[in-house]
Amino acid sequence: MPDLDLIDRKIVAELMRDATLPIAQIADRVGLSQTPCWKRIQKLEAAGVLTGRVALADPEKLGFGTLVFVEIEAPNHSVQWREEFATAVAQLPQIMEVHRMAGRMDYLLRVAVPDMAAFDLFYKRLTDAVPIKNVTSHFAMERIRFTTAYPVDTRNR
């Protein structure tokens, strides 16, 4: 992966803040004209630096008021179990993120559900789908800070 220069980092930062900005505004903010700016965005997409453009939604207003972080301890670390687990989590749309971890837990899931009853159904589907040694759930009481933007350095190096 090539190093990103200052202009590339500024473009990425602007798009992470608001992907709906017109090319003209992005170009103006990063000090380019529109065509070179658009070409850089295309290059960043082709290189896999920019992986998509999405709209962020308020989970409460969509009826997903319960956020749960679920720790999973695997019964073993075989290829077969990992594949079964990957298949199971891919079929559960309530799972927003899955991370394989180092440390005391093997996997960490971010799960969005409407309420406790919905989480109970999710839990049963997950544990019926694949053997799990241990499941620990942590319910978020308040979201204090949330961002999808990485802290890209937009200063001159």
Rank of each mutant, 00 (worst) to 15 (best):
Y150Q: 14
L62R: 07
E142S: 02
M16Q: 15
P2I: 03
V152I: 15
R40A: 04
A47G: 05
V70M: 08
R104L: 05
A140F: 09
E45T: 12
T87R: 15
P75W: 11
T136M: 09
V135D: 01
R53H: 12
R157V: 05
G31W: 12
A57K: 13
T127W: 12
T154H: 03
T87V: 06
Q34G: 00
T148G: 03
A24R: 15
E60G: 02
M96H: 12
T66E: 11
A118Q: 08
E83H: 11
P131R: 15
V30N: 04
Y107T: 05
C37L: 06
Q34F: 05
L108C: 07
D120Q: 14
L67P: 00
E97C: 00
S137N: 05
E83A: 04
F64S: 01
G63K: 07
A112E: 09
T147F: 06
L4P: 01
A90N: 11
S137A: 13
W38Y: 14
P131V: 06
E84I: 00
P2F: 07
Q42T: 10
G48H: 03
V135Q: 03
F119Y: 15
N134W: 14
V130T: 06
Q34M: 09
T87L: 06
G65A: 07
R145E: 14
S33F: 07
L4I: 06
I72L: 11
Q25N: 10
D18R: 13
M116A: 11
T35D: 04
M116F: 12
N134P: 00
A149F: 11
